[in-house]
Design a protein around this nucleic acid. Structure first.
Length: 333
DNA sequence: CGGACAAA
DNA sequence: TTTGTCCGG
């Protein structure tokens, strides 16, 4: 998912503490929901579900993560995707295939009693569907968290809001926001500082990338960074075979972008894709409104409708108001 | 993923 | 106080 720019950005990573991250964070909702959906699972890979079989993993994740962010003086704003651009179709279709294969492998692993593989495949089979999005919005709204609808890509919308200064930074695990012009991108905005990767425990902490520092360090313009990404491959194109990050930088620095990108077989003209990153469709008349949680509504939704433990939800909700010196109602334009 | 609790 | 394990719905 996203762009494989990681190796090029390694030198420009900052490691902020939570005290440096206070402010308003535009969170890529799809990205966050996917993380909850794939990560919050039982050992056999099954997500949390209510008695009716409806998935609740994302609701648990949203409640507790939001409580954590509020306690750290971070006001989250969730930004939801609209319609994907036409040239994303191939990527979306590939993701469907990957999910279908993972689902099959999950079932097979369960039959063989291989719970470790089962969990891995279950995670890969995660699908952020309409129910996940609607129920996620419903909970966020009850929690008093602002939700913004993007006309197309959420990351483009977040980037625009960060450029305008209406949010302090964009939050996503993907790097696409930089291509869309987000001046400030923060990854790993997660609380449990540890993560199991291939059986090993690695500590995870917030990671910040400033577009200015990246462009200055690489001595490129944003448009050139977009060209580098297109040569490597993005959600909108397949890139040029045999070209990785290092070669892509070289090609662009030699002014051979158009020459080399023509080797790839992409659904859209390179200039169309460049323009999409440089001037994406965004909603310019959004209004960010945050308020304190509607306690009764949250209890009704989580406890009565979805069978959450009252004690746990109450404990989570209590953490929302606990921050001193924070007004309960803030709004921006 | 994140919370709770036990063990070190 | 830190680390590990289990459970949530």
């Amino acid at each position: 998912m996203g762009v494989a720019l990681r190796p090029l950005l390694a030198d420009y990573k900052e490691s902020p503490g939570w005290e440096d991250l206070g402010g308003v964070a535009a969170i890529d909702a799809f990205n966050a929901l996917y993380q909850f959906l794939s990560g919050i699972r039982q050992s056999d890979g099954a997500p949390l579900m209510d008695s009716e079989g409806r998935v609740t993993s994302h609701l648990s994740g949203l409640l507790f993560r939001t409580a954590n962010l509020i306690e750290k003086n971070i006001t989250p704003v969730y930004v939801f995707d609209g319609k994907p651009p036409a040239f994303k179709a191939a990527t979306l279709s590939k993701r469907r295939e990957v999910r279908a294969f993972a689902k099959e492998s999950w079932e097979n692993a369960l039959k063989e009693g291989d719970t470790e593989s089962a969990r891995k495949y279950a995670m890969a089979s995660s699908k952020v569907d309409a129910y996940i999005i609607e129920s996620g919005k419903e909970l966020l709204s009850a929690l008093g968290i602002a939700c913004i609808e993007a006309p197309e890509e959420g990351e483009a919308q977040s980037s625009y809001m960060a450029q305008r200064g209406d949010v302090t930074y964009a939050v996503s695990q993907d790097y696409d926001s930089l291509l869309f012009g987000a001046p400030d991108l923060v990854r790993n905005v997660t609380i449990s500082g540890k993560k199991k990767i291939r059986g090993k425990v690695i500590s995870i902490s917030p990671e910040r990338l400033r577009l200015d520092a990246v462009l200055k360090g690489m001595s490129v313009t944003r448009e050139e960074l977009v060209q580098i990404a297109l040569l490597i491959g993005t959600d909108y194109n397949s890139g040029v075979s045999g070209v990785g990050p290092k070669t892509a930088v070289k090609i662009v620095s030699e002014g051979k972008f158009y020459e080399r990108i023509s080797e790839s077989d992409n659904a859209a003209e390179p200039d169309v894709l460049i323009d999409y990153f440089m001037n994406p469709p965004v909603n310019t008349s959004y209004k960010i409104v945050s308020r304190s949680p509607d306690h009764d509504k949250v209890i009704e939704m989580l406890c009565e409708e979805h069978g959450f433990s009252l004690d746990r939800v109450e404990a989570g909700l209590e953490r929302f108001g606990a921050k001193k010196g924070q007004s309960t109602l803030d709004s921006w334009f």
